[in-house]
Simulated assay, not measured.
Amino acid sequence: MLAARDRRRALLRAAALGAAVTLPVVVLAVVVRGESGTLVRLDEAAVVGATDVTRRSPTLRTVLLVWQEVFAARWLNLVLVPAVGVWAWRRHRLHDRVVWAATTVAAGWVLQLAAKGLVQRTRPVIDDAVAHVPGSSFPSGHATNTTVVAVALTVLVWPVLGRTARVVVPTTAGVLVLATAADRVLLGVHHPTDVVAGIVLGTAIAAASFVGFRHRAAAPAGGRAPAATPTAADSP
């Protein structure tokens, strides 16, 4: 009875956190969906300026296109996440965390696709475009997915990281997320608000999922303490 009540409370906390963090994304979606106003004009001006920079440097354009491919979901979700998961599962026995990370990444991909379908924002329209990508613009799939993967993998490996690595890993993850967001705007395939919304949405998905995961990992089963309860040092 108490366990069921605790589970409900944990789910409510996770849902409340996710809703609170996602609220800015909803506000942005409403604003940009109207396709008018100061924010939309700033978006368009930023994309024009960013693509002008890219167009002047063939080397930069090549790097951005390579980055776009490397950080596509098919490589992150289907290669990187499973590879790290297998390593964490076999080498460190982080079974629950591996399952959580894989589930979170899959859920994040589905939710960002659903968000794109709801908002249906057109991609930037630019004369002499730097790159062409199909589909809707808001939120950025690359930004959302990279954020979810970055947070999920950081949480996954956290218990086995040393003191230095606990600074290096999240810092590197954050830099990769920001670089991916910049890549989308510099290629002219997303507006700045698209990538901001993607980062916020990805953070909300991963954070809400982790709240539920922590409760599940710490909850006693059959009145006994679990074999491996996360400690303050184990959880970021």
Rank of each mutant, 00 (worst) to 15 (best):
96 D>Q: 15
107 A>W: 01
109 W>Q: 15
105 V>G: 02
9 R>S: 12
91 R>S: 06
131 A>M: 12
7 R>W: 07
230 P>E: 07
34 G>P: 05
78 L>M: 02
119 V>M: 07
180 T>D: 11
175 V>N: 01
102 A>P: 00
19 A>D: 08
157 V>M: 13
117 G>Q: 11
56 R>I: 00
26 V>T: 10
214 R>Y: 14
52 D>G: 13
110 V>D: 04
134 P>I: 08
48 V>P: 06
94 L>S: 00
169 V>F: 08
8 R>T: 14
147 T>M: 11
38 T>Y: 13
11 L>K: 05
151 V>R: 00
164 T>C: 10
2 L>A: 14
53 V>A: 11
236 P>A: 15
185 V>T: 03
65 L>V: 14
173 A>F: 05
114 A>P: 03
234 D>W: 05
189 V>P: 03
164 T>M: 12
158 W>C: 14
225 A>K: 10
36 S>F: 13
97 R>C: 10
213 F>A: 15
203 T>A: 15
215 H>P: 04
20 A>H: 01
217 A>F: 05
105 V>P: 00
221 A>Y: 04
179 A>T: 11
23 L>S: 12
164 T>L: 15
115 A>I: 02
89 W>I: 06
182 A>W: 03
56 R>C: 00
227 A>F: 03
223 G>M: 07
234 D>A: 14
184 R>K: 11
141 G>N: 06
138 F>R: 01
234 D>V: 09
74 R>S: 08
15 A>G: 11
36 S>K: 15
147 T>S: 12
182 A>Q: 02
79 V>P: 03
15 A>E: 03
58 P>M: 08
229 T>F: 04
175 V>Q: 01
9 R>C: 10
198 G>T: 10
81 V>A: 09
193 T>F: 09
55 R>Y: 03
78 L>G: 12
134 P>S: 13
193 T>E: 11
48 V>G: 13
198 G>K: 05
170 P>F: 08
167 V>Y: 07
92 H>S: 08
177 V>G: 03
209 S>V: 02
25 V>I: 10
201 L>G: 02
11 L>P: 00
173 A>C: 11
36 S>T: 15
41 R>Y: 05
103 T>F: 13
34 G>S: 15
67 W>I: 00
190 H>I: 12
100 W>A: 13
126 I>C: 06
58 P>L: 08
116 K>P: 03
163 R>N: 05
22 T>E: 08
177 V>N: 01
156 L>P: 02
54 T>Y: 08
236 P>T: 13
8 R>C: 08
229 T>H: 06
91 R>D: 04
147 T>L: 09
22 T>I: 12
115 A>H: 00
64 L>R: 01
114 A>L: 14
106 A>N: 02
